[in-house]
Each structure stands twice: as C-alpha cells, then as structure tokens.
Write a protein that binds this DNA or RNA. Sequence first.
DNA 1: CGTCTTTGACCAGCGC
DNA 2: GCGCTGGTCAAAGACG
Length: 214
Amino acid sequence: MENHLPVDPPPPPLLPISPPHQNPNFVFPAPVGAASQLDPQGMLDIDWASILSGQSNMQVGVDQDIVNSSYKPMVEGGEGGLSSSSLMGGINNGGSEDMEKENNNNKEKRRRMMKKTTRPRFEFQTRSADDILDDGYRWRKYGQKAVKNSIYPRSYYRCTHHTCNVKKQVQRLSKDTSIVVTTYEGIHNHPCEKLMETLTPLLKQIQFLTTLSN
DNA sequence: CGTCTTTGACCAGCGC
DNA sequence: GCGCTGGTCAAAGACG
C-alpha cells in the first residue's frame, strides 16, 4: 500500500512518486493541460502544500470538461459537499414500502447531487513504477474499471477521513506505460496526516532547543 | 476483529 | 429502445 514514508529525498532522475508532504515545492512532471507553462524540461513548480490544504486556487491540469464548461476555482463549502452519512443512508433492512421509497429517494438525491456539484479537479501525470502516488493522505479503494482505449484499468479511491469527500482516480497510460495519471476531485478539509506526523517531532525538537537556548 | 481490496452488479448519461 | 461506457455500491474475502 501507500503507507510508506520514505526517509530520503526522491532520487533523481526518475520523477516522483515523491510525497508532496515531504517537500511542498517539489517539482512535478508535466501536468496535463499545462504544457504552455512548462519549461523545456517539461517541469512546473507546484505549491503542493497550498493545493492540498485547499488554500490555493491553482489549477493544475484541470480536467478538460471543466475547462470547457463552467468550472469555477472555488473551494467546496461544508454544506455544499456530499455528506456520506446523510446521502448514503437508507440501507434496505426492512422491506416496508416507505423505507424502500425513502431508500430510492436517497439514492436519487445522491446521484443528482453528484451530478450537479462542480468540484475542483487536478490531474497529474507522474512517471512511476508504482500506481499509487503517496500524497500523504489515506485512501480507500472503492472501485476499479476497465476503460476504453486503455489496457490498464482505472482505480477509484476515496479519502478515508470521515468528514472528507475527496476522491481520486488513478490510471496508467497505455501509450506510455511508465506514466501514471492521477486525478484528484475535491479539496481535503483536514490536515495531511503524514505531514503532521513528520512535522510534530521536528516541532517538538525545535521547542526543546529553543528552551535550551533561553 | 477491524480495515482494506476485489469484483460483479447496478445505474445514469449519451450516441445511434 | 438499445448498447456502450464510466462511476459507484456492497458483499465477500484477504490481511495484519
């Protein structure tokens, strides 16, 4: 799984899979749709910390559909987002007509919501042997589909944080099998767990040294 | 035993 | 209406 935390900085020349939480300004390879902003090596500076914390409106390889439609670089509000607890409700454990009706209503509501809500999407292409980009968050896989024009399946992941509704899709390019396309949908409403894990001991050490010097 | 992945089924949207 | 495709659900199984 992706629950590894590399100690060393990402080795050149192969590009990431480097966890953004290790280096917020890490240079990622060409994001889709950002070709015009790239330098000759196809690199682009990305402020990962801002993007992942939701403090940036930066669009990186924004999904083409959204570019062509009415995409707004907005952070999805708490009440606007899908609450899985409210929308996933209605498990059919009875069999009464009312319950079934409510169940169907909930399903319908959820589908409409999912269709309606425009969410920020960021798409990255990374050159990696691993399909899973360790971005510091915890993900649960909820589906995998064979997609057209690709010999590799697309995997669907959801952030495991209970209040967070961010999803990501991971797919390997059939044209260039060394490239993994990761599409993030939505913005995390909680801090990056691994970032905190990494920073906490450091902060404690700094505090300790500060008290010593005083 | 809790968490996570796998995988077949289901559904909606879309084009014909 | 029908078939295709993409996205999601949920039961079952694997794993630590």
